[in-house]
């Protein structure tokens, strides 16, 4: 359902735990252009809360969606400006 997002790039942080999903997401977002959507695929269940907290507290990013699957947590982050 959420894979309908027009993702520019996918970041694979499977098997990595805190703080890697956040730090890597930030680095990947920095390399994107405004309007691009980053898909972050993680296995760390803490990434659900962490990505949300990070997106809320960081200017220039917007969390579009978070999908919880079989031990897989997928986040869609848009670079706003």
């Amino acid at each position: 359902m959420s894979s309908e997002y027009d993702t520019t790039e996918t970041l694979d942080v499977k098997g990595q735990s805190c703080p890697m999903p956040i730090v890597k997401t930030k680095q990947a977002i920095d390399d994107l252009e405004a309007g691009d959507v980053l898909e972050v695929v993680a296995t760390d269940s803490g990434s659900m809360s962490d990505i949300q907290g990070w997106a809320d507290g960081t200017s220039g990013v917007e969390l579009l969606d978070q999908v919880e699957g079989d031990d897989l947590y997928t986040h869609y982050v848009k670079k706003s400006d």
């Binding site: 805190c18 703080p19 956040i22 730090v23 997401t25 930030k26 990070w54 507290g57 960081t58 200017s59």
Partner: peptide
Amino acid sequence: LILGSTAAAFG
């Protein structure tokens, strides 16, 4: 180290 690098990710 964890708090520092995460805070940097917040800008």
